[in-house]
Amino acid sequence: MHIQEELSQRHVLSLTVSNEAGILARIAGLFTARGYNIDSLTVADITQDHGVSRITIVTNGPPKVIDQIIAQLDRLVPVHKVTDLTEAGPFVERELALVKVAGVGEDRIEALRLADVFRAKVVDTTIESFIFEITGTTDKIDNFVGLMRQIGLVEVGRTGVVGLIRGKEAN
C-alpha cells in the first residue's frame, strides 16, 4: 500500500481576532493538530486601541479541507471573523520582500535593470551589493527572486501575504 495525496488549492484567509496573549499559538496549534498547511502567516494589530489584529493565512488543501479550516478557525473564541478572500470575490494581495544581491560589472547593471522592470526600490547599497525592496503578489516576488538568483542572490526576507477585499465595504 502507498499513501495517496489529494490535489490542493491555494487559499488566502483573512481573520480578525482579539489581540490577546496566546491567540497566535491557538491558531498555529489548530493548523498542526488537524494536519492543515500554512504557506505563510502574517499578524499585526490594526485598530487604534490595539484591540484587534488581522491575521492573513495562506494555506492549501482540497476544497473540503479548506472549508473545515475556515469552520475550525471561526470556532475559536477570540476569532471575530474569517473571510476566504480567494472565494469572496476580487481581492488585493500584497507581499513585501527584501532581496540582497551581490555582484559587480554587468551583473550589477542587470540587477538594477530588472529591479526597474519589477518596480523594486534600492534601500541599501555597497559597491558590490544591493538590497531591493519589492512589493507585489507572491508570484511576482517569486519571479523576481528567481531572476536575482541567476545574478547573485545572497538572501531574502519576506513578510508573507496580506490581503483585502476590493471595493468600499469592510469585511
Binding site: 496549534g29 498542526t32 493538530a33 488537524r34 494536519g35 492543515y36 479541507v65 473545515q68
Partner: peptide, 13 residues
Amino acid sequence: IGTDAFQEADTIG
C-alpha cells in the same frame, strides 16, 4: 487526522 476520528487526540499538540 483533524476529523475528530475515534480515539483521535492531537498528541503532537
